[in-house]
């Protein structure tokens, strides 16, 4: 761990101001950042502790949705009665991630900023374009069973490991960001994370000194809320594939559908063409296969992770069966 300055802020505006210096990072739960700092993989000069700036409540918004403060912990968010009733997919996704101890520390804004997971990113002696742009990608041709099958580039094949953001992508939530100079902007969760392209060092669209202040959920989406996570052990493992689905049925047809996918790409994956395909149709195996065809049209395995392609198809079809079938 490289020596760093530490500053504790007690106010969002003060925190943003304090973050104007280059090499500054915010710290909330620290569940990912501290691990990375211990390994010298992230080496901030200065940490702004934002745990006491407020923004730790879930409040109703004007359009009938909810506004989740950036410092609401994963545990509190998942347990909130409004989230459990109206945004069950989000509660389920959060509870599918990490462990109880980690969820008690992890925060809403911090969790969005969780770095991609890759063995080689986590090893300072390995070439990694994300850690050291231009050094190469060791995961290509290496141990890549957990890596991306969608949206990867020749520079990086890492996956975004989180669960919460996958559900937020399905719900079409938005991230509220306060930037340097006091401007506030809003970015859909679906556009918050990036694909690696030729700049894999950037996981998301945040600029230096940007502070996530809230995540807003639109008015509740009707229908079944499903989060299905497939992983190597029953708990405390990253998703090989995960699917968040909010599907409403009406008179035997799919009235609306919104799906997002984890474990497949550098970001929570959302393809509007899948939602469009399903909407208005009667559920059938053929329809579900078509949805999988769209999702996996450009899927590319790296060798060890080829199995993710059939696994994703099977899982997607099972989720759609569950979402559209008779209630048991």
């Amino acid at each position: 761990m490289r020596p760093f300055d530490y500053y504790r802020s007690d106010d969002p505006a003060d925190a943003v101001k304090a973050a104007s210096e280059k090499g500054t990072l915010f710290i909330a739960g620290g569940t990912n950042l501290l691990d990375l700092m211990k390994l010298d993989l992230m080496t901030p000069n200065r940490l702004i502790d934002i745990n006491r700036i407020g923004l730790d409540e879930i409040t109703p918004s004007d359009d009938g949705g909810l506004s989740i403060g950036t410092l609401v912990t994963n545990s509190d968010c998942a347990a909130d009665m409004r989230i459990r009733q109206d945004y069950a997919v989000l509660s389920r996704a959060i509870l599918a991630g990490a462990s109880g101890q980690l969820r008690n520390k992890a925060t809403t804004g911090g969790n969005l900023c969780q770095r991609t997971r890759c063995y080689y990113f986590y090893d300072p002696d390995m070439a990694c374009n994300k850690r050291k742009p231009g050094s190469g990608c060791s995961a290509i041709g290496g141990a890549n069973r957990i890596h991306a099958i969608l949206g990867a580039s020749d520079e990086c094949i890492a996956t975004y490991p989180g669960d919460m953001a996958v559900a937020m992508a399905a719900l079409d939530a938005e991230v509220v960001i306060e930037g340097q100079g006091g401007d506030t902007r809003t970015v859909p969760v679906r556009d918050f994370h990036r694909l690696p392209g030729d700049q894999p060092d950037r996981d998301n669209i945040l600029e230096s000194g940007d502070l996530i202040t809230h995540v807003t959920l639109p008015a509740p989406a009707k229908g079944r809320h499903i989060y299905r996570k497939v992983r190597d052990r029953a708990s405390y493992a990253f998703a090989l594939v995960s699917i968040a689905a909010v599907v409403e049925m009406d008179a035997g047809k799919i009235a609306s559908a919104s799906l997002a996918f984890g474990g497949l790409a550098h970001k929570p994956w959302h393809d509007p063409a899948i939602d469009d395909l399903l909407t208005g149709e009667a559920p059938s195996e053929a329809l579900f296969d078509k949805a999988a065809d769209i999702l996996l049209a450009d899927a590319k395995g790296q060798g060890q992770n080829d199995f993710k392609i059939p696994l994703t198809r099977r899982t997607l079809k099972a989720v759609l069966r569950e979402a559209t079938g008779e209630r048991s």
Partner: peptide
């Protein structure tokens, strides 16, 4: 079910070197 050290095929170093990636059983298993 899931416990295995995984190695880079090119230099033989162990890649899953922490409890997040080396999967010992957890309570739910």
């Amino acid at each position: 079910l899931h416990e295995a050290m995984e190695f880079d095929p090119r230099d033989g170093h162990v890649v899953n070197n922490d409890f997040a990636e080396y999967h010992v059983p957890v309570n739910l298993d």
